[in-house]
């Protein structure tokens, strides 16, 4: 057990360093703006006051290291600066949208994870049958499609032709849970298609890998029933790779959510990020980029830790 703890701490440390480096990169990114930052961002027509305000906003009058320190300190305290586009505090803009994004992502996860594992297991147990081939072809297509293609097809069918779901996913705080779910059903379905396809294919591969082991053959030769072989011999050893697959694909969800939010004009963090990038609203880009990155790193971290914990060899050593 000591061993595992050590590995987990090591992994945790690596993640913290990564987050630190990423915050530095994000910070330097702004520094790298060619020419005079303020003018290039605000354009030639900017008045001297706005330029000065901008410089102060980015603390351009101080040396970089101090500026980084101040920025990081503010960030940790939840002060992400003010938006260049509309002058409102970034934290205010972000909080509500972050909650919306998490709502969409977690709804998707709740649908996609059980579905993917279930289909993956079925495809593995009935590999090379018609069912397996059907599922493999379908998922291969979903992986090949851009998210917005799936999204528009769903809109075309369910919103335009059948008119049973809204084509825009507009939500506000006054809506109750069911109507919120109803509003985000199409975007969530789009994400589910993509994430499930990836997750299911990898789950299938992981389980087939375990089923090919010599100890599964041994169990068959011992005359153990198929059900028991699956539950008792295959399952405990598949756990580690499958958990890893799930967590890694949830990390993918973070990227997918950006595009889907834009398609459905969903008021989430992804759409905010894209808007701010086109407006070059740097404080907002910095903050939302960092939040996305931290979430991504966190999910990859949990993937690794969970698969370490579920790896029988690691778990058992030196108890």
């Amino acid at each position: 057990m000591k061993n595992v703890l050590f590995l987990i701490f090591k992994r945790l440390g690596a993640s913290l360093i990564t987050i630190f480096v990423i915050s530095v990169i994000i910070f330097i990114g702004v520094e790298l703006l060619p020419g005079d930052v303020a003018e290039s961002v605000l354009g030639q027509s900017a008045t001297t006051e706005t330029v000065a305000a901008f410089r102060k906003e980015l603390k351009l009058d101080l040396p970089p290291v101090i500026r980084y320190g101040a920025w990081l300190k503010d960030f940790i305290q939840g002060d992400f600066g003010t938006s260049l586009a509309n002058g409102r505090p970034v934290s205010e803009l972000i909080t509500w949208r972050l909650a919306n994004t998490l709502f969409l992502a977690s709804t998707t996860a709740v649908i996609a994870i059980p579905l993917a594992i279930f289909l993956g297991m079925l495809a593995a147990f009935y590999r090379n049958t018609f069912f397996d081939k059907l599922i493999s072809t379908t998922t291969l297509s979903f992986i090949s499609f851009p998210e917005f293609f799936i999204a528009y097809i769903l809109i075309f069918i369910f919103a335009v032709k059948l008119n049973i779901f809204p084509s825009l996913a507009i939500i506000d705080d006054n809506m109750n849970f069911t109507s919120k779910i109803y509003a985000i059903l199409l975007p969530s379905l789009t994400l589910t298609c993509v994430v499930t396809a990836h997750m299911m294919r990898q789950t299938r591969a992981a389980i087939i890998n375990v089923l090919a082991s010599a100890y599964i053959e041994m169990a068959e030769i011992k005359g153990i029933t198929r059900l028991r072989i699956i539950m008792h011999h295959a399952f405990p050893n598949s756990l580690s790779p499958v958990i890893n697959v799930v967590a890694v694909n949830l990390a993918y969800l973070i990227v997918g959510v950006v595009i889907v939010e834009v398609v459905f004009v969903y008021p989430g963090l992804g759409q905010l990020l894209v808007d701010s990038v086109s407006k070059r609203d740097l404080p907002v880009v910095q903050a939302s980029g960092l939040i996305f990155s931290i979430a991504y790193i966190f999910l990859n971290l949990s993937a690794d830790i969970l698969s370490m914990l579920s790896n029988p060899k690691l778990r058992q050593s030196q108890i």
Partner: peptide
């Protein structure tokens, strides 16, 4: 490379493009 890969690609690209145009 590990460091770069720890960053979601789309987010990284968006941030670079926001800075460089």
């Amino acid at each position: 490379i590990d460091m770069i890969m720890a960053f979601p690609t789309l987010i990284f690209a968006l941030m670079i493009l926001s800075v460089l145009g």
